[in-house]
Amino acid sequence: MGFGQLSFDMAHLLAGGVLLLCFVLLYQRRVAAVIHALALQGVALALAVAWQGWVLGMPGLYIAALAALGAKAVAIPIGLRLLVRRLELRRAVDSAIGIGPGMVAGVALVALAVLVVLPATPGSGVLAREGLAIALSVVLLGMLMMIIRRHPIGHVAGLLSLENGLVLAAAGPRGLPLVVELATAALVLVLTAVAGFFALRLRDDVAGPGPGLLHQPYAEGDPPGKAGR
């Protein structure tokens, strides 16, 4: 590879920053802190992507970085803050399995990701694999967050973090085709998801309170004793 060691070290440093911020996200209990960490992660991601764009000489990645910066570091955190205030959500993001076990699970996931990706056949780029391992870890941690957090913001943060991992993976290798388009599409997806999530939540609140509606209108399950063939 025709680049100096520095460029890879730098890329890994930035990617590692994104991963670290995942753990920060896992660690946070308060909504405001989560949103802050999310914004920071967006900044780190934008930096990583931009660095890749510079290293690889792909100006398209600058656009992706800019989009990431604009959306994830600025727009989404602000939007989330507004929504939290508007919907009067709880301020604490409680976790289903506790912070400590959550961290342990996160470390285990990272270990799994490394186990899966790193045992390389000779000849393929070890360094590229490291990047992939980090991206995989970020994706898995994002999913973990979606699962262990009970708060809506938890879902959103997890999804966004997951998407950060995707962009990280996409921006890593050299010459992935359509990378900008894919990154944009992923961003659109996440934006739609978040927007849709809250829009539906808003409509839901307008319509009336009470969760678990799906299970009520046709409370399924036969009455006992009516066990036909």
Partner: peptide, 25 residues
């Protein structure tokens, strides 16, 4: 109920699509 179904759909499908993208990459 439609709204709640849509939310469920959105989260699950969104996650699925994201994972599929990772697989593609």
């Amino acid at each position: 109920a439609a709204i709640e179904a849509a939310r469920k759909f959105l989260i699950m499908a969104g996650l699925g699509i994201a994972l599929a993208l990772f697989g593609t990459i």
